[in-house]
């Protein structure tokens, strides 16, 4: 079937091929085997799981007919010290359709780590909703270590209430079709951050579509995307920061940096900024390019092989995102990147 994915909120001329993308792939059938493991200190939080035979929609343009819903509530004032880990290693041709609803009640805090891996073809369709109550704080780390021929669809929507702070980090390092959708509503004096690290390889298609709204006063939205493309991979980045009327004294920033490692890859970006409010500070920046021969030469003259030099430069660029991640995750990322660059 052909799916029209991630349509843009404010379209531009169709000649630019950015308003939406279409992809053709067989619709996978759900079977109940794919199930998430949940680990960590679960004593102070509430978890409900339910299999639902109804449509799971997202703004990605693709929907499924049945799924598992996991509802996690962090009660008022509860602070969970260590991250809760939801993970799954896919067996061959396995599919997983899941919706996770994270509800942070007032002044609570908790970090979550979603990790998905596979050695073969797999299909992940994950929809996440996060609601952060007044003064709550949360970090959500999503890691995609799926096999080369896998599909990874991840949509997250969030509401961040007054004084709350949410950071989403996406590590996108696997799969042939990778689709991400993010929608954030950032209310008064709250902070909503999105960090993305990606490496496209072979013939993979990557589509990032993020739409973050500064809705109320003193809100902050920040999108930082660091990535690299090799082989014949194609990437679309569409990030929108929308300053709505009434969001005075708000800040929105958006940065995307893409390193092009081959002559056959293709990078398309649309860092969009919409502004209906005068008293705001909005900035966006995009940079793309290859690794300069001078830099490579310098590193190689210091004894590094070409492969090592590439690796050092890439990791240097990714460090803005990796520096805030736990050590074990960083080492997993380094291993995966080495494997992909090999």
């Amino acid at each position: 079937m052909k799916y029209r994915l991630n349509a843009l909120p404010v379209p531009t001329t169709n000649h630019f091929h950015i308003n939406d993308i279409s992809l053709e792939f067989p619709k996978p059938k759900y079977h109940m085997e794919g199930d998430l493991q949940i680990e960590g200190d679960l004593s102070s939080i509430v978890i409900e799981r339910e299999f639902l035979g109804k449509k799971l929609t997202s703004k990605m343009g693709f929907e499924v007919d049945s799924y598992q819903e996991i509802r996690i509530t962090i009660p008022k004032g509860v602070h969970v010290a260590k991250p809760i880990v939801l993970s799954h290693h896919f067996s061959s041709r396995e599919v997983l359709f899941t919706k996770i609803i994270l509800t942070y009640l007032e002044d609570s805090s908790c970090d979550f780590t979603f990790t998905f891996s596979s050695d073969d073809t797999s299909f992940l369709y994950l929809v996440e909703e996060a609601h952060l109550g007044v003064g709550a704080e949360g970090n959500v780390l999503f890691s995609n270590f799926l096999g080369d021929t896998s599909y990874c669809f991840y949509a997250q929507e969030n509401v961040v209430e007054e004084g709350a702070k949410l950071t989403h980090t996406l590590l996108d390092l696997g799969g042939s079709v990778r689709l991400y959708h993010g929608f954030g509503r950032t209310l008064a004096s709250s902070m909503n951050q999105l960090r993305v690290l990606y490496l496209g390889d072979k013939e993979s298609t990557l589509d990032f579509h993020f739409y973050y709204q500064n809705e109320e006063k003193h809100s902050t939205n920040s999108i930082l995307v660091e990535g690299a493309l090799k082989d014949s991979s194609c990437k679309n980045f569409r990030g929108t920061i929308d300053f709505l009327k009434g969001c005075s004294s708000s800040v929105g920033e958006e940065n995307e940096n893409c390193i092009l490692l081959s002559d056959t890859c293709r990078s398309r970006s649309l860092p969009q900024m919409l502004c209906h409010e005068e008293d705001v500070v909005g900035t966006h920046g995009v940079s793309s390019g290859h690794i300069s021969q001078d830099t490579l030469f310098y590193l190689m003259s210091r004894g590094l092989s070409e492969k090592e030099a590439y690796h050092v430069i890439l990791m240097g660029n990714f460090s803005r995102i990796l520096k805030d991640l736990p050590e074990e995750v960083v080492s997993q990322v380094i291993d995966k990147i080495e494997e992909m660059l090999a």
Binding site: V10, T12, F16, H17, I18, C258, L260, L261, S262, D263, C265, R266, S267, R268, S269, L270, P271, Q272, M273, L274, G282, T283, H284, G285, V286, S287, S288, G289, H290
Partner: peptide, 18 residues
């Protein structure tokens, strides 16, 4: 601000800021 940027080659130095 609605800037679309499409790069089809690696050997390019590109920057956009707004």
């Amino acid at each position: 601000t609605i800037p679309v940027n499409t790069l089809e080659t690696e050997n390019v130095t590109f920057s956009h800021e707004a």
